[in-house]
């Protein structure tokens, strides 16, 4: 209960900041940040994690060593993630309490947390012994599992983002309709 209060007082503070007011008032700010959230965040993050996931699952790029692929792709995934967090926070700030009060928002955050946990567990266990299976066409079960789970989780995060947008638009539309 205290946590909920804390979250909503944070949201209340956040949506009163000048940045949040600007996000609401400007015609271009929200759609531009939204586009960057997709272009510079979603695209590199999802492309990098999907390619690595496909290799881990044994579906493609079988001739490329896993560690070489990971070294090439992970910086793109991290850059994408960082941009997602920054642009996501800007979008969220515009109507923080409204976003936080939807059922979708906590679900999206939970899915991101799960995707992170999945990657962390994989890096700490199966990937520790990558030297033993680096060039294997089909990686061990732990890696295949982590790959498929990552693909499913990051795809679900994208879906939740879209649903969140629709959910908040519906709330805003309803408010406008009742305010007529």
């Amino acid at each position: 209960m205290r946590l909920v209060l804390l979250i909503f007082s944070f949201c209340d503070w956040l949506q009163r900041t000048p940045v949040a007011s600007y996000m609401r008032a400007s015609f271009w700010a929200f759609p531009l940040v939204e586009s960057l959230h997709i272009l510079c965040g979603n695209v590199p993050l999802l492309v990098a994690t999907s390619i690595l996931s496909a290799r881990l699952a044994g579906w493609g790029l079988r001739e490329v060593p896993v560690s070489k692929l990971a070294r090439g792709l992970l910086p793109w995934a991290w850059t994408g993630f960082l941009i997602q967090v920054i642009t996501g926070l800007l979008l969220f700030s515009s109507a923080a309490a409204k976003y936080a009060s939807t059922r979708i928002f906590p679900l999206k955050m939970l899915l991101i947390l799960l995707a992170g946990t999945n990657a962390l567990i994989f890096m700490r266990t199966t990937y520790r012994r990558v030297a033993a299976w680096d060039t294997a066409e089909v990686p061990p079960l732990g890696a295949r599992f982590a790959g498929v789970v990552s693909l499913l989780l990051w795809s679900s995060v994208l879906v939740m983002g879209r649903v969140l947008n629709s959910a908040v638009s519906l709330v805003v539309a309803a408010h406008l309709w009742f305010a007529r």
């Binding site: 997709i38 979603n42 695209v43 999802l46 492309v47 795809s155 879906v159 879209r162 629709s166």
Partner: peptide, 21 residues
């Protein structure tokens, strides 16, 4: 409509992702 929009978003990832590489 939102469901088709979501698929359109996955299409962006495939199209813009691959052409960007």
């Amino acid at each position: 409509f939102p469901a088709i929009e979501t698929v359109h978003l996955f299409g962006i990832v495939a199209l813009v992702g691959s052409t960007s590489i």
